[in-house]
Simulated scan of single mutants.
Amino acid sequence: MKTDIENLSKIQDLLLKYKMEIELSSMTPLTKKIYTDHAHNFVRWVSNDFAPGSRLKKA
Rank of each mutant, 00 (worst) to 15 (best):
W45G: 07
R55I: 08
N41V: 03
G53S: 05
L8Y: 06
S47I: 05
L14W: 10
Y18I: 06
S25A: 05
K19D: 13
F50V: 00
F42T: 02
A39P: 02
T28N: 15
R44D: 07
N48H: 07
L8Q: 06
V43K: 00
T36D: 09
N7Y: 14
Y35H: 05
W45P: 06
M27C: 15
F50R: 01
S47A: 10
F50L: 01
K2L: 15
M27H: 14
G53W: 01
D37S: 13
I22A: 02
S47W: 01
K57G: 06
Y18E: 03
D13I: 09
I34G: 08
R44F: 12
I5R: 03
M1H: 07
K10Y: 08
M20H: 10
Y35Q: 06
N7A: 11
K32T: 08
K58N: 10
L8V: 05
D37R: 07
V43M: 01
T28L: 15
K10Q: 08
M27N: 14
M27L: 14
S25R: 00
I22N: 01
V43L: 02
P29W: 00
S26Q: 09
S54F: 14
S9N: 14
F42V: 03
G53F: 03
I34Q: 10
N7R: 09
G53T: 00
H38R: 12
F50G: 03
M1V: 06
S26W: 04
A59S: 11
W45H: 09
K19P: 07
K33T: 11
